[in-house]
């Protein structure tokens, strides 16, 4: 029996490695194919490169009305706005739910939890009407403004959980020293909740960067396109002719997500494990 143990462990590792390889194969293949001439992409299912064909990147970069950098910049602006909005508004709401005692708290808290599961499709039509009456279509405001209003309740919940874990003695001591809620929040709670804030930054980054539905609806002017909308218009305009260029820009669009994943893995795993939403 004992002799079999290392063999079984090795077999298990082999199986897991193989599965990981199969899972990541499509992505690896896309990266490799983005460095192949178009006629090779469809012929070669393998991962070996015979030569480096970097022209796809230049071609893809200039394939749409504006250079691809323009869309990357648009996405970056939206992402940055959403991150700031979520950090400010969600931490404020979380402080109230975690530390303040107010009328109807439990009802409001339940409503807040309920909105986590609210499908965006149920609110998109009236939202669109509201924003079009404000003349906000084809601006980034419909994407950023909701974040300034703590509508990503998921992060409110994440931060509430975190603040509840901080010792109340700290607040009490500050209160005795004459601090109001503003200062307790700003000088005591916020500095202590950096891990929760980091988780919020990383999730907001990845979700906003990948978000397609609302960007598709609110951004119809090619000049305002973000990366996902631009990429999609690329697909529709070229129909199967320049897969190399399309793969190249797809790879470019995934790089920021991948970097966020590498840098923020610890926070991502923790965030999912404690709140359970991807």
């Amino acid at each position: 029996m004992t002799d079999l143990k290392p063999v079984r462990a090795a077999a298990k590792h082999l199986g897991l490695m193989l599965l990981a390889f199969v899972m990541l194969y499509p992505v690896l293949w896309m990266v490799v194919s983005s460095l192949r001439p178009n006629n090779e992409i469809f012929r070669r299912p393998g991962l070996v490169l015979s030569s480096l064909h970097t022209q796809n990147y230049g071609q893809g970069w200039d394939a749409l009305a504006s250079p691809f950098g323009h869309y990357l910049l648009n996405s970056a602006i939206v992402v940055l706005g959403c991150i700031i909005g979520n950090l400010v508004s969600c931490s404020m709401a979380a402080y109230a739910f975690a530390r303040l005692d107010f009328t109807g708290k439990r009802v409001w808290f339940a409503i807040m939890l309920g909105t986590i599961m609210l499908p965006i499709h149920v609110i998109i039509v009236p939202q669109y009407i509201l924003f079009s009456q404000l003349d906000w279509i084809n601006t980034f405001l419909p994407l950023i403004a909701p974040k300034l209003l703590a509508t990503d309740a998921f992060f409110v919940f994440l931060m509430v959980q975190f603040i509840r874990g901080l010792p109340r003695e700290l607040d009490e001591a500050a209160r005795i020293d004459g601090c109001g809620h503003g200062r307790i929040f700003w000088q005591i709670i916020l500095p202590l909740m950096k891990p929760a804030l980091a988780t919020t930054v990383i999730f907001t980054f990845i979700w906003t960067w990948n978000d397609f539905f609302s960007q598709l609806i609110y951004l119809t002017d090619p000049d305002m396109y973000t990366v996902p909308v631009a990429l999609r218009s690329f697909v529709d305009s070229t129909v199967n002719t320049s897969w190399g260029a399309m793969f190249a820009m797809s790879v470019v669009s995934l790089v920021p997500v991948f970097l966020a994943f590498l840098l923020g893995q610890r926070y991502l795993v923790k965030g999912i494990a404690t709140t359970g939403i991807k």
Partner: peptide, 25 residues
């Protein structure tokens, strides 16, 4: 109760609830 402080801290969230989430529902 800390009603006044809570109102300040929850102001953005209430705004979002009425204009962006529950209102549109």
């Amino acid at each position: 109760r800390d009603n006044r402080a809570a109102l300040v801290f929850l102001l953005p969230w209430f705004g979002g609830l009425f204009f962006i989430t529950l209102g549109p529902v």
